[in-house]
Design a protein around this nucleic acid. Structure first.
Lengths: 189, 189
DNA sequence: GATATCATTTGCCATTTGGCAAAAAGCGCA
DNA sequence: TGCGCTTTTTGCCAAATGGCAAATGATATC
């Protein structure tokens, strides 16, 4: 819980009463490896904060290939925004890549926090915008770079993730085949 | 001006007084083809709404190649968020690809609107979040697709832009060479 | 330890895309 | 119309990556 509060306080101030209110709404969620936090075709009904483990967002492209859109590390918010905000079916899965521990808020409680805590919406907006900008910044450069450069950039961004996720997930994140990634790794050694 | 108001009202309600206040702060900006709306290395000091023309965001990658990050069509907000919000030097250029007409707000007026108009920040947040999510959605799939599919997707998304921008800009947006794009176009005919 | 299962690496060859330079096409302007 | 400039297309060959299948390695289970 401490991790969540520290995280949030980076984006704005809250008094003890407000922190207590947030804490009182939080529940803990444990997911085993491969379990889904939210699923494509369903409406996302919770916001999570990843305390332990690695998750990923993935989907199936029009060729039926499973694509990892991005990885989520410890101390980050986890939510299918599009689905949660607009109450529409999600187009992607959020999946635990390792066993994961989340701090969770259901939609009703989350709404209540937004309505009750002055400034909470501003904090949430900052967090969301920052995360979105980060995604754009990470995804855009991939287009110009060759597979080796992409992998090296991946190593830097996700240094803490590399050794905890299967090669296949990384390959699909980078848009290359498993074999290519395997060869790239060999070349870099 | 009407276009801007209609655009904004899609994201929330404003009364006539609020609309008038917004209007009173707006100035018109004309940029000739190739001129910059904001520049890398400088701090972005204005928010614009593109009324006429096509712009793009571009930058130079580590190989010195000029990369088009995305195109901006009529009736969209134009701002280097990272730079404008945090008052840090921009890392990308925002450039008029054709002659462009913007409705502009300088930083001081924009702040004043945010402080004065109740709900304006919520509207702006919605607009920004939506735009960011759109960027992520557009950029992410590129990674899995071959050059022809990428170009076809580009055609759908930017149907209104294709014939108004040089082939070289599109090629760099798609992460392929001009020659490749030229060949792809030939094959599609 | 043997075995089943899944993940990763490797080999071989096909396909895609890039690099470079020249040719062709398009366009403004005298 | 003709010239000069920029943009786009094309040809040739090289390099990168993919597709497929087999081999190897890692891990869990009995």
């Amino acid at each position: 819980m401490k991790e969540l509060i520290n995280y949030v306080l980076q984006f704005g101030n809250l008094n003890q009463q407000q922190i207590d209110l947030i804490t009182s709404k939080a529940t803990e969620l444990q997911l085993q490896k491969d379990a889904y936090f939210s699923e494509a075709g369903k409406i996302a009904r919770q916001v999570g904060f990843l305390v332990e483990g690695v998750s990923r967002v993935c989907y199936y492209n029009n060729k039926g290939e499973e694509i990892t859109k991005y990885f989520i590390e410890e101390n980050n918010l986890v939510v299918d925004l599009e689905s949660f905000d607009n109450e529409i079916c999600a187009s992607a899965y959020v999946q635990a890549v390792t066993d994961c521990k989340f701090i969770c808020f259901n939609k009703k409680d989350w709404q209540e926090l937004l309505n009750t805590i002055v400034g909470w919406d501003t904090i949430v907006n900052k967090i969301i915008s920052k995360a979105l900008m980060q995604k754009v910044e990470r995804r855009s450069p991939l287009v110009t770079e060759d597979a080796t450069e992409r992998y090296q950039k991946f190593l830097r961004i996700y240094a803490n993730v590399v050794n905890r996720v299967p090669l296949a997930y990384i390959a699909s994140y980078l848009g290359i085949t498993q074999s290519s990634l395997s060869r790239i790794r060999k070349n870099l050694k």
